[in-house]
Structure formats: structure tokens, C-alpha cells
Design a binder for these strands. Sequence first.
DNA 1: ATCCCGAGGG
DNA 2: CCCTCTGGAT
Length: 211
Amino acid sequence: MRLKHLYSDAPCTLDYDTPVQLMVATILSAQCTDARVNLVTPALFCRFPDAAALAGADLSELEELVRSTGFYRNKAKNIQAACRMIVEDFNGSVPQTMEALLKLPGVARKTANVVSAHAFGVNLGVTVDTHVKRLSYRLGLTNHTEPVKIERDLMKLIPQPDWENWSIRLIYHGRAVCNARKPECDRCALADLCPSAFLAAQPEKTVAAQG
DNA sequence: ATCCCGAGGG
DNA sequence: CCCTCTGGAT
């Protein structure tokens, strides 16, 4: 199995003006679809365009602006705290190491991976989220259930010289094509190699089979 | 009802 | 491991 063949027609970049905006949008995307994040970010970044503005924002106004993305109280508080830390400790820029990124409130491994890959073109690791787990399991890329072991297995399959964006591609493919409810095997580049593809005609059995 | 590019805390 | 936080789409 060569992951080189895992090409989706999905964009591997998120179009935001600055790394700070990308980080904010990524925090907002937790347990929330991109479409809804894209609905709130224009007004959000018009009102509070950078880390300094977000750091000084009125918290309740910030909460209202991001309300529809869910978990909005946590997200607003974390975004503001992260931006304050960026202003005070990181010279106004999103830090570029995993160690520093993890210090930002609301940023853990998954968000750090996505921010780094999108904003800086550097993969700090393979993000093993619910989508990547499902995709890896269906494709038989791993026998394991622990994210650390799945990550290790995936690392072996990713072409190392140019593995930038692979973390993102895996997530996106798992979300958009190899999705939980109705996997779109007819537009999956790996369908002919996938032991689960034939179940696509019976989506309820596919989901049940994944446990 | 179930899920969504999760994080933080116990 | 568990739980909580939240709104919206399907």
C-alpha cells in the first residue's frame, strides 16, 4: 500500500490572511464543520483582525461572534488567552514548534499539527483524529486502536521526502470521502485497494462493522 | 439520534 | 479511562 495514491480533490490549504487567523479558525473548527467556521470568520476577523485585537476584545462580544460554532464559551476564552500569550510571550506571532504551540490555550496536538502544516508548511506529526482512525481501519493500514501506534504505522507509509500536507490529506480524505455515515467510495482513489469499499452499498452495515 | 478536522480536566 | 462543554446539520 502506497499512500502516494491517496489524492483527493480537496484543497490542502486553508485560505486565511495570517497564521493567527488560521489558528483561530482551527480552534473554532473543533467539533464543528468547516462551513460554519467559514460563516463566522469574515465578521470575526473584520472586527478583530489580529492577535492584539483579539487579546483586547470584549469577551462577551467575542463569544457572540463565534457562538454558532458550538462550545463557544471555551473557544472564545481560549482564543483570547492564546492571543494574549502570543502578544506577550511570542512577539505577536504564532510559534512554530510543537512545544511552544502546546502552551497556547485551546491548542493541543491536532490543532498544532493543522496550524503548522497549513501556516508554515511543516508537518509536526500525523494527526490521528476520528477521521484518520476510521480511514486507517477501513483501509487496513493499521491493526491498532491506540492513536500513538496508528501514527507510527502511518508514518511508515507516508513518502518521507515530501510528506508535507500528508497529515492534512489524511484528515480530509477521512472526513470528506471516507466519512462515517456514507463513504463515497465511487470517488475514492483507493477504493479498488480497500477491503471495506464493497460495503459502501450498505452504509448501515459499514458503520456497524467499524464498531 | 448521531455526528462534526477537540481540548481540558478528573 | 472518564466526563463536560455547545450549536447546527442530516
